[in-house]
Amino acid sequence: MWDYSDKVKEHFFQPRNAGVLEGANGVGDVGSISCGDALRLMLKVEPETDIILDAHFQTFGCGSAIASSSALTEMIKGKTLDEALKVSNQDIADYLDGLPPEKMHCSVMGREALQAAVANYRGEEWSDDHEEGALICKCFAIDAVMIEDTIRANNLSSVQDVTNYTKAGGGCSSCHEGIEEILVKVMSERGESFKPGTPSQEEAKPAGMTNLQRIRKIEAVLESVRPQLKRDGGDIELLDVDGKTIYVSMTGACAGCQMEALTLQGIQQKLMEELKEFIKIVPTKAGALSRASCHV
């Protein structure tokens, strides 16, 4: 049984805005019947203002697909089209208090349905630009197609390379066999053979940043999430950066909040995207760090 959040269950058992929307003027049909998830999103848009007056969905899919569809309709109602298009799949997942890694594609589908429906309303042609493969890394929800494309585009030749570029394999490491198999396949296409244990071609330099630049970048990311935390009565403080480990302290309402782990996960994701490297964010109490570092 999947570990669904209460919010996912609630939106599945009592889906909002389900069924046909009469008078819809923007419809997006996306999904894959072979994968078993497909969604029709129907929008009623006010032409003068571009505001989404109503949104309905019909979904052929699992619990989290139905919940993601339901959440999406709730999130975009009342927004203008341009505002709505800013809703990312991570926003949909966050709205539902997270989705299991195997199910993140349900939120991606929601976002794509939105793009398709808006394109339909605007009389444009929408075409899908990503292909989904078998899920390889469950820690970071990275699929085979993404890994394969990244290896090809960047001439990668080690599991470490793949982790540095895609994050895949950077968690529990049980998918390393799967990553090696993809490496063997892609490398043989370019006439090379995969050698386990060879050091990565290039030590994933954090995009040529100096430590100072890096720390400034980290501060900037934390600054960008701060207003959101403050709204909930909390805050975050950068304590130290030790290689790929970033120590932070959660204060105010954030400290000990049940959502702390989820919040940190989101921040870690943002940091990795900004720094373009695999990092780990570790919550620590201010002052505890000097003691902790004695053991290193």
Partner: peptide, 9 residues
Amino acid sequence: EKAFAPTYA
């Protein structure tokens, strides 16, 4: 199959 033919996503 014609009533609903989603774009592959």
